[in-house]
Amino acid sequence: MSSADTATTAAPDARAERRAKRIAKHIESFAKQHGGSAEGVVEYVGGMATRIVLVGADGSWGDQVAPSYAVGKRAAELAGLKLHEDFEGELALKVRTSSYEWKRMAGIQLGG
């Protein structure tokens, strides 16, 4: 294997690691702004993206999108995010919604 072959196989991994580190910084920022810690779940969105759903210690929620499940999971690990298998039970109970979400959900249900 030539050095050119080695460089092309290493480049995607390096790029994925850079993306994971960038996303991890956003996760850490979210945690810091919402009570100092966060929990979450990494979910497939489709063939081209993965969603990291975040729940802060104060019950606020948010998300980050990663280009792949592997990058999303790596970002969560780098950020020290406590991961759950799914967005149900314990994690879902921690979410606190505001009046904005309730109004928005009601509008969607009523066709608004």
Rank of each mutant, 00 (worst) to 15 (best):
S3M: 12
A49R: 09
A31K: 08
A7S: 10
G56M: 03
G35C: 02
G59Q: 02
L110S: 10
D13Q: 14
K73W: 09
A10H: 03
T9H: 10
A7D: 13
V53I: 12
V42G: 08
Q109C: 09
G46H: 06
R18L: 14
V71F: 03
A11D: 04
S68V: 00
G59T: 08
G36T: 07
K103W: 01
L81V: 00
K73A: 11
V55A: 07
D13I: 08
S99V: 12
R19H: 15
K103S: 06
A11Y: 13
G40W: 07
V41M: 07
W61P: 08
L110Q: 13
K25W: 11
G47K: 07
A38F: 01
K32E: 15
A66Q: 03
E77R: 15
I23K: 08
T50Y: 11
V42Q: 06
W102K: 14
S29H: 12
E90A: 05
E28I: 01
R19Q: 14
K73C: 04
A57T: 15
S60N: 13
T8R: 15
A24M: 09
T9I: 15
R74P: 13
S3L: 14
R104K: 10
W102Q: 14
R104L: 08
A14L: 11
R74F: 03
V53P: 01
W102G: 05
A38M: 00
L83W: 01
L93S: 15
S98P: 08
A7G: 02
W61Q: 11
Q64F: 01
Q33S: 11
A79K: 05
W102M: 11
Q109P: 07
A75Y: 03
T9W: 07
G59L: 08
A10R: 09
A79D: 05
G47I: 07
G107M: 00
R96K: 13
K73D: 08
A4Y: 12
R96L: 05
A16C: 02
I23F: 06
T97R: 10
Y100N: 11
E39S: 15
D58M: 06
G56Y: 04
L93I: 09
A76I: 02
V55L: 04
V65W: 05
G36Y: 01
A49D: 09
P12G: 01
L54S: 04
A24V: 04
E88R: 12
R96W: 00
E90N: 07
K103V: 05
A79F: 00
G46D: 13
P67S: 11
A66I: 06
G112E: 12
A11I: 06
H26R: 12
E85W: 03
A75C: 06
S2R: 10
S3I: 14
S2L: 05
S2E: 12
G89Q: 06
K73L: 07
G107Q: 07
T9A: 12
R15H: 11
S99D: 12
I23G: 01
S3F: 14
G47R: 05
L91V: 01
G56H: 02
D58A: 06
H26Y: 13
A31R: 02
F30Y: 05
G36W: 00
A92N: 03
A57N: 10
A66E: 08
S68C: 09
S68Y: 03
K82D: 01
A79Q: 07
I108C: 09
H84R: 02
W61M: 11
I52H: 04
E28L: 05
L83D: 00
A70M: 08
E77I: 13
I27V: 09
G56F: 01
E101K: 09
V95Y: 02
D63R: 14
P12S: 06
I52F: 02
